[in-house]
């Protein structure tokens, strides 16, 4: 969409756009280019000689069972966090979408966790689920469950999923509620007169109208789970036990910062960038259509 009326001149606008462009070039394009270059090179153990190795880093990466298992863990983790947070957000929003006493209070009580840092959510959940000090953790042990996420990989994954999803419910709740409230009352009334009730009404009327919002949330939740949960994992499991909670971002950090394998870490970053660009493109196709309609 273009405006009819504009201001004349080109010096001022260039000046206005310059800071943003400069930051973008220095902190996005330069690192991206450097990362791409690093992903095609290998440096010897002493960090002296760097040589071009083509796609060898990528080949090594995809041949590495550790990397493949990290991909699988990330997929399970992201899918579970998305399903859990979007599902809970949806249920809460459906409950809140009505004239209810105390509505405003409920809303405050349900949105504040948006402000909680993932790493802090992790610390709060330790207090619930730690087998020695956690309230729920001790119940589980008392009930005879072998609850010890420091030893059991599945339990560790479950732990980071719950803590990560908990924090993200608010965001989903807000968007679904806004989506529900933007459905015209007339549509709901018409459905009611046709005798559509409860779940049937939800499935045939609300769900289709909500689909774009839900799709948007799936993308946002996937990106959140993939990239914003480093703090949760670092605080709760450090990627362990074994490598049971080593997601892709956690592995980039481990290999690049801790193990100083820059070539491989850069190749992993490039793969991640590819993933993000794919998700962005998906989202944009949908966002674009939505803006046009």
């Amino acid at each position: 969409m273009e405006r009819r009326t504009i201001f004349p001149g080109w010096r001022l606008p260039l000046l206005l756009v310059a800071p943003q462009l400069l930051l973008t070039l220095v902190f996005f394009y330069w690192p991206a280019a450097e990362g791409l270059w690093q992903s095609l090179t290998r440096t010897d153990a002493f960090g002296i000689h760097t040589r071009f190795v083509g796609l060898a880093n990528f080949a090594a990466l995809f041949a590495d069972p550790r990397y493949r298992s990290s991909v699988a863990i990330t997929l399970v983790f992201c899918a579970a966090v998305t399903a859990l947070s979007l599902g809970s957000g949806l249920v809460l929003a459906l409950a809140a979408d009505r004239e209810l006493r105390g509505r405003d209070l409920y809303r405050v009580l349900l949105i504040w966790p948006y402000a909680v840092a993932p790493a802090i959510a992790a610390v709060l959940w330790l207090l619930l689920l730690n087998p020695q000090i956690g309230t729920i953790g001790r119940w589980l042990v008392a009930l005879g469950v072998h609850w010890d996420y420091a030893l059991n990989g599945t339990q560790a994954l479950l732990l980071v999923i719950v803590a990560s999803a908990w924090k993200q419910v608010s965001y989903n709740f807000l968007f679904v509620l806004a989506g529900l409230q933007s459905i015209p009352r007339a549509v709901i009334e018409a459905a009611r007169m046709d005798g559509a009730k409860g779940f049937h009404r939800f499935r045939t009327i609300q769900l289709p109208l909500l689909a774009p919002t839900l799709f948007f949330l799936v993308i946002v939740d996937l990106v959140y789970a993939a990239f914003d949960t480093f703090g949760v994992i670092q605080a709760m499991t450090q990627g362990g036990p074994g490598r049971a909670t080593e997601t892709l971002v956690f592995k980039v950090y481990q290999d690049g910062v801790v193990n100083l394998d820059l070539g491989s870490s850069a190749a992993q970053s490039v793969v991640l960038m590819g993933g993000v660009i794919l998700l962005t493109a998906l989202q944009f196709r949908f966002l674009g259509r939505r803006v046009a309609s």
Binding site: T24, F28, D228, V252
Partner: peptide, 24 residues
């Protein structure tokens, strides 16, 4: 061009370019 240069970075979180950004 300026708009697209900015736009392309839309969802590239710092987490995916962490090591190269550190180098810069």
């Amino acid at each position: 061009t300026a708009f697209w240069i900015i736009f392309v970075t839309l969802m590239l979180p710092v987490e995916v370019r962490i090591i190269p950004t550190y180098a810069v």
